[in-house]
């Protein structure tokens, strides 16, 4: 019955070993899918390479469906699962800023680590930028600490806020996702015909 660590089934120093192993798998999958290249990542926004959409959405859908089946079979105790708390306004602002950063920088933290691993200087600079950004944030924190904590809706789930049951929401996501996969396949074919064949890195 999961989750294992919060219930003490796995204890002690194993935490960090597991973290390392899971991270290695994560990094491997990211790099092998092509996320170590910033041009691959931003391709989704310009229509020539939808790898981000495909990997990301597929992963979310698989995890959601899997989680619901696990819950059904009693293999995981959903009460013990950490639900990211929702701070409405700060998160909206944060997501928008991240959207800019994502587009301009061409990476996100996880993928930038894989970029560094294969020697991409822009990934290293991006990570450096992350460091600076977080530092700036912390120094300026007293200015907006109230804002940071505002609008705390608690650890709400989608079900609680949107009123859709988990199964219904998953189904909607699956349908939308699958539709997106087929549509983007068509778009990609068309866009690639028109732009110069670009050198993959």
């Amino acid at each position: 019955m999961g989750p294992l660590i919060p219930q003490g089934i796995i204890t002690g120093g194993w935490d960090f070993v597991i973290a390392l192993l899971l991270g290695i798998a994560f990094g491997f999958i990211l790099e092998a899918s092509g996320f170590s290249s910033s041009r691959n990542i931003t391709g989704a926004f310009y229509g020539y390479n939808f790898v981000v959409l495909r990997v990301f959405l597929t992963a979310v859908l698989v995890a959601m469906i899997g989680l619901l089946y696990f819950d059904y079979f009693g293999w995981i105790d959903m009460d013990l699962l950490y639900i990211l708390p929702t701070y409405l306004t700060p998160m909206i602002i944060g997501a928008i800023i991240m959207g800019f950063g994502f587009l301009i920088g061409g990476f996100c933290p996880g993928t930038s680590y894989t970029g560094i691993a294969i020697g991409k200087l822009d990934a290293m600079v991006f990570t450096g930028g992350l460091f600076i950004g977080i530092f700036v944030f912390s120094e300026a924190f007293p200015l907006f600490s109230d804002f940071y904590y505002s609008d705390n809706m608690g650890n709400v789930t989608i079900t609680e806020v949107l009123g859709l049951s988990a199964e219904v929401f998953t189904m909607i996501m699956v349908v939308v996702g699958l539709a997106a996969f087929w549509v983007t396949w068509l778009i990609e074919k068309r866009v690639r015909k028109n732009i110069n064949p670009y050198k993959f890195e």
Binding site: P90, G94, M98, I104, F126, I134, L162
Partner: peptide, 29 residues
């Protein structure tokens, strides 16, 4: 981009892996 992302990730309580990927998968709003 990194600086912006760094700032944004603090407000957003996570980045695309932590908040978007894992958050959505665990049905967090």
């Amino acid at each position: 981009g990194g600086i912006l992302f760094g700032i944004g990730s603090q407000f957003g309580r996570g980045c695309s892996s932590g908040a978007a990927l894992s958050g959505t998968a665990s049905f967090s709003f």
